[in-house]
């Protein structure tokens, strides 16, 4: 690891001033330190945000949003009473994230900003395009963990469990900049390889992600996060699905379906959401939704199984939603 200057600002403004060429933000550090140990990240300056008051707070605010400071740890979020009350889907996602030890350090902001886990990207022997190198080694190589959607010259998958879950809850992120701050829907936060081959989100070098806001879910909403991984713990998703559904009587009035582990960004399948709204969740409709979800899948040589996984997971999630509504009726 190359040495660096380590700074602990006490306010966001101080932190923003410290940003610049060679500077990197340290939050939980569970991803960044790994990248530094591997020589993938070589910051000259490390700006630790932990000293900034309030940045780790989780609050419900009068306008109906839950606001999560970007420095809140994953375990803090998972244990928060408001989360248990309104967003059980988040708890399902958090329980499947990394390990208990990592969840006690890793932050919500860091989780959304984590770098790809692609083994070519992480490996020193492969100078891939995401490291300003020469191409994608997964193409024609060992691609079983790679993207079946949205790949383009690069086939990473977004590794987060939390991101699809937050996206299914219509979360927004607050981004601080020296001049002004902005609030962006999480859907617009992530950046695929068509837009950038070197970064995975819209943050510029002058910006800091400070908070995540989640609206109160609609009435009668049901949410679930399902994940398949090879190991039952401390493993990234081969595929995952976050679903949030609401009803009026038997009619679906609101639907969010977001896939994880299958695309360079958390993959929202709007065409499925649209076809679910306005109708009952019948078995037939669920089957059609599953087919529809993988309509535009373009699997690589060894990851066709992910197509089947997405269908299987979505089927399970929608059936669970349907059962929960029926239970609610009784």
């Amino acid at each position: 690891m190359k040495t660096f200057e380590y700074i602990t600002p006490e306010t966001i403004d101080e932190a923003l001033e410290l940003l610049g060429e060679g500077a990197q933000i340290l939050a939980g550090g569970t991803d960044l330190l790994g990248e530094m140990k591997r020589g993938l990240a070589t910051p000259k300056r490390l700006i630790n945000l932990k000293g900034i008051q309030g940045l780790a707070d989780i609050r419900s605010i009068p306008d109906g949003f839950l606001t999560i400071g970007s420095l809140a740890t994953l375990s803090h979020l998972a244990e928060h009473p408001l989360v248990a009350q309104h967003y059980p889907l988040l708890i399902e996602a958090l329980q499947r994230t990394a390990s208990p030890q990592i969840r006690n350090i890793a932050t919500v902001g860091g989780n959304l900003c984590q770098r790809p886990r692609c083994w070519y990207y992480r490996h020193s022997a492969f100078p891939c395009i995401r490291k300003h190198g020469e191409g994608c080694f997964a193409m024609g190589g060992q691609d079983r963990y790679h993207a079946i959607f949205g790949g383009h010259r690069c086939f990473i998958v977004h590794p987060s469990d939390l991101a699809p879950a937050l996206m299914a809850l219509d979360a927004e992120v607050r981004i601080a900049h020296a001049d002004d701050s902005r609030i962006v829907p999480l859907t617009d936060f992530f950046v695929g390889p068509r837009d950038s081959l070197t970064q995975e989100n819209i943050l510029t070098r002058q910006e800091i992600l400070t908070a995540i806001r989640i609206p109160v879910p609609p009435d009668n909403a049901y949410g679930t996060y399902l994940k398949v991984s090879e190991r039952k713990a401390t493993d990234f998703a081969l595929a995952s699905v976050a679903v949030s559904i609401a009803w009026l009587d038997t009619q679906v009035t609101h639907a969010r379906v977001v896939l994880g582990g299958v695309a360079p960004v958390p993959w929202r399948v709007k065409q499925v959401e649209e076809m679910l709204i306005g109708d009952e969740l019948s078995g037939k409709r669920i089957e059609r939704a599953c087919e529809r979800a993988v309509d535009d899948a373009t699997p690589l040589r060894h990851n066709r199984y992910k197509v089947a996984l997405v269908k299987g997971l979505l089927r399970k999630a929608l059936h669970a939603a349907h059962r929960s509504r029926e239970k609610g009726e009784k």
Binding site: H123, A125, F137, Q142, R231, K232, A233, D235
Partner: peptide, 20 residues
């Protein structure tokens, strides 16, 4: 890949956890 071990860590070389 080309004789290079890709899963050279305990995240990608997956030994069973207590849950497995």
């Amino acid at each position: 890949d080309k004789g290079v071990v890709l899963n050279e860590n305990l995240t990608e070389y997956k030994i069973p956890t207590a849950l497995d």
